[in-house]
């Protein structure tokens, strides 16, 4: 699964510009599904049919946070804004790669009054140009962080782990899938990082009976880190709540019981910020019971996000088990 993950994280696909990763996923899963389509916003929907079974929507988002150019000045320096939650602290000294392959570094305006990290408006990208004319970058071009995959053994590091690790979990689940208690819609969504937009329209189209997002969550296990209980390596996290939703208690119970029965380690997650595609599913149409399997991830939205491969493996196992376990809900259509 490491190879799968490595290939995924090294693709550039900022929010709104997901085609490269979508093409790769399509190529991999085409032989494994009954039907596949791309919708008007660019979501990839793949169906694993199961007659007379309730419909479950599984979603992982394809997009990663990135940058968009707003202005190239006379000297060829490019100003930018973020696509999704790019934090200034992670930009200083960073390198970026544009979709057309151009690379550059992020510079910062000097601010003699303080050593505080300035906002993104005080930063610029230098692609080695010396004037606007010879700058290969134009207003509207988009970029992502440039950072190769780092294999630390049990743990791995990369940019875009959020949420290519979720994409990897879905693909691996699909590869191992034998029988299922559900008709499964595997949704690889777009524009999650800018406000769960892809999942909003995908859920409307799929009309699932229940939905699960597979996404990363923060951890509290680093020095003076977030005040939360989730740790790396202690198993996938079953979300109880985040800033965007309260996960459906019936689904929480279903996941907890399934994990305990199968002796899969799990954690209970409360995240006081952030949100996932599940929130869009929950409020779709007449409402859809929705939950999240989270992959614990350190340094979320930094260019070096770390996950533990055992957590990833256990997430695949848990999801596989869940798909064989009828949910406790009454799911008449």
């Amino acid at each position: 699964m490491k190879e799968l993950l490595k290939t995924l994280v090294e693709i550039s696909a900022p929010s709104g510009y997901e085609s490269q990763v979508r093409n790769q996923i399509q190529e991999w899963i085409r032989p494994l599904v009954d039907e596949m389509r791309v919708d008007a916003l660019g979501n990839l929907l793949a169906v694993h049919r199961q007659a007379d079974a309730p419909r479950i929507m599984l979603v992982a988002h394809m997009d990663e946070i990135g940058l968009m150019i707003t202005h190239v000045d006379r000297q060829g320096f490019a100003r930018f804004v973020s696509l999704g939650g790019v934090m200034p602290i992670h930009c200083v000294g960073g390198r970026v790669r544009f979709l057309n392959g151009v690379q550059g570094v992020i510079g910062v305006e000097k601010n003699p009054a303080s050593y505080e990290i300035p906002p993104l408006e005080k930063m610029f990208i230098d692609v080695g140009a010396s004037s606007a004319e010879d700058c290969p970058i134009r207003i509207g071009d988009v970029a992502v962080f440039e950072r190769p995959f780092l294999d630390l053994g049990k743990r791995v590091v990369a940019k875009a782990m959020d949420d290519r690790v979720g994409v990897a979990v879905l693909i691996e689940t699909l590869r191992r899938l034998e029988k299922s208690a559900f008709e499964i819609y595997f949704v690889f969504s777009v524009q999650e990082e800018v406000g769960v937009r892809g999942a909003t329209v995908a859920a409307f189209g799929v009309e699932p009976h229940l939905g699960l997002a597979i996404d990363v969550t923060a951890t509290g296990d680093t020095p003076k880190g977030h005040r939360m209980e989730v740790q790396l390596g202690k198993g996938p996290a079953i979300k109880i709540r985040d800033a965007g939703m309260l996960a459906d208690p019936r689904l929480i119970q279903w996941m907890v019981q399934t994990a305990e029965k199968a002796k899969i380690p799990y954690q209970r997650e409360i995240l006081e910020f952030g949100g996932t595609d599940a929130r869009a599913i929950q409020l779709s149409r007449s409402g859809v019971p929705a939950g999240v399997i989270s992959i614990p991830c350190r340094y979320v939205h930094a260019p070096s996000e770390m996950v533990d491969m055992e957590d990833v493996e256990n997430a695949v196992k848990l999801l596989g088990r869940l798909l064989q376990t009828p949910s406790p809900l009454e799911l008449s259509s």
């Binding site: 916003l41 909003t200 329209v201 409307f204």
Partner: peptide, 9 residues
């Protein structure tokens, strides 16, 4: 607008 129905470019 773009988030209505199954997505409106």
């Amino acid at each position: 607008i773009h988030l209505q129905h199954v997505g409106i470019p």
